[in-house]
Structures are given as C-alpha cells and as structure tokens.
Design a protein around this nucleic acid. Sequence first.
DNA 1: CGGTTTTGACCTGCGC
DNA 2: GCGCAGGTCAAAACCG
Length: 316
Amino acid sequence: MKPAWIDRSSLSLDLSVGPLSFPDQAPIAKRAHHTNPMHVQGSSLKKDETEDLEAKLSRMSEENKKLSELLGAMCTNYSTLRSQFFDFMSTSPKELGSISPSRKRKRESLETVGFNDKTYERTDSFSNRVESLSSEDSCKRLGEDTKPKITKVYVKTDPSDSSLVVKDGFQWRKYGQKVTRDNPSPRAYFRCSFAPSCPVKKKVQKSAEDRSVLVATYEGEHNHGHPSQNEVTHGAYHNGSVPCSVSINSSGPTITLDLTKQGPRPPVGRASRDIESPEFQRLLVEQMASSLTKDPNFTAALVTAISGRILQHPSA
DNA sequence: CGGTTTTGACCTGCGC
DNA sequence: GCGCAGGTCAAAACCG
C-alpha cells in the first residue's frame, strides 16, 4: 500500500525564488535610461554607471552568500532524510508472490503504465521516475492474482550513450537482448546476480519518445538486502544520484523517488510515524531542494536563469 | 580461469 | 493451426 503522501506524484514544489528582486534596481535602470547623455558630462555618466555596477555587484554577492548558506543547510539534512526513505521503503509490502510463467506477457501489458503522460527527470547517473505498481490499483487486483512487483524507472542519459546500463547499486547479469517492435532501440534483459536465488529481473530499453531516456523495468523484489549500503551511499549517490530527487523540465518540477533502494527493515510503526510527521515533510522538501542544488545541470540552468534576469534589468 | 556479455536459436503466449 | 512478437537459453567470445 502506498501512503497518501506518495500519491502526490505530481507534487509540484515551487522552489523558484521568483524574479530576482532588486528593490533599488528599477529606479537605477530608469535613471540610466532617462538620462539624456547630451545634457550630462561624460565623466559623471561613467561615475553613475560605475556606482550602479558596484551596487549590483554587492547585491549579487549578498544573494550568493544567502544561497550558499541555504545550500549548506540543505546538504546537512540530506543524509537524514535519505535514511528515513530507506526506512520507509523497506517497509513496503514484499509478499506479492511470484508470477506464473504463463500469461506473463498479457499480464504485463495490463500492468505497465504509459509514459506519455508522465514526466521524467534527471540527475547525474541514476535518477529516476518510479512508477510502482504496488500502489492502489495493483493492490485492488491483489486479491484476484499474485504477481511480482513491477517498478518502472526512467533514467536520463546521454542520447549518444548506447549502453543500457542503469546504476542502481545492485549486481546484474545480462542474459539477453532483443529488438522489440514498438521501439527501434534494443531491450536488454538482466537478472540479479548478487544472490543466485534472487527472482528480480530488469529490462532496460531506451524510451521510444525520448532516446535520451532509459526505461528500466524491475520485476519482482530482491530476496536479499542491498549488496552494500555503503556502496550505495558512497558510490552511486555520491555522483549526484539520490533516492529522492527533483527535476525541472517542460512539464514543471517533478519529484521522483527511487523505490528500488532497500535498506534494513526498521519497525513499521516508526516508519509511518516518521512519514506523517511535519518534520518528515519538512525534511522531504529540504531533500528535494538539496537534490536540485547538487545537480550540476540544475545549477548551470540556475546560473543561466539568474544571468538572464540580470540582463533583463537594463542599467546601461 | 571464472564471471560477464553477446547473439542466434528456441520457446511460449496471443491474435487471427 | 499459423504467424508474430516477447522472453529465455546457451554456446562462444570477451575481459580482468
């Protein structure tokens, strides 16, 4: 079962700080525009411009300082929230049973969810939009049939990168590759090779809509712990990848959770209590902001946006 | 040398 | 029953 708060998949977190407000900038710009150079000596005009630039520089420095402080605060909360996510995700139901070999294809076609109405997101190496089918709809069907948990993860990659590799911390062995009819990109089949008895399979294929997006479909659930929590913590995630991340794209901000990470199981009560608490909600928001600030692509976009804002305030 | 990847062949379900 | 398409197998190649 998925808690209500996770159902806010379209949760839009407006982290934008809005137009950079420089209270005294408009008058400055206005003054500069309305000053007739014909009536002003060149030296005083240059002096005005210099003062304007200095004032702007100091404002920018202050803004930069504030943002740096904000970033630091966000980062300190990141690890806390991540561990709480591990706690929660490890309490999700795992008793969905195994799928019978027959009627596999038909069932999957019913279960898989469309991509067109979804947005995806990116971070550096492993980030994702997860569509867990252990949600409400699939729960309704649980009484009728048992089936493995199917999770879809969207990973933004370099379009020129032909490798079908999704780093998720687990150890996978490729056992097949196939070109499917509906997608010119080949689909790769992986099995979890960490534990011989692990039933989890993974299919990875580039999205037909956007070839820069890898679609990883996880089938089943690992019957073992994560190969190495440290590996995950200090490996993939440190490349800017986090189990919870935020993206901004044409569809607007999107929050995505990596539901494939599994940590040690904590008591159920604790996890639910944490999630419902205002503190958890606050940490969630902070985590999202942290994810954004850790993404070099986002920061680059932010710099561009800020630069654009500055240029929109003509002062010369 | 053992584990992984590649890739063509084979198996199975589904629609007609 | 047949053809199609997705999924899996397994031998060979590859790699550290």
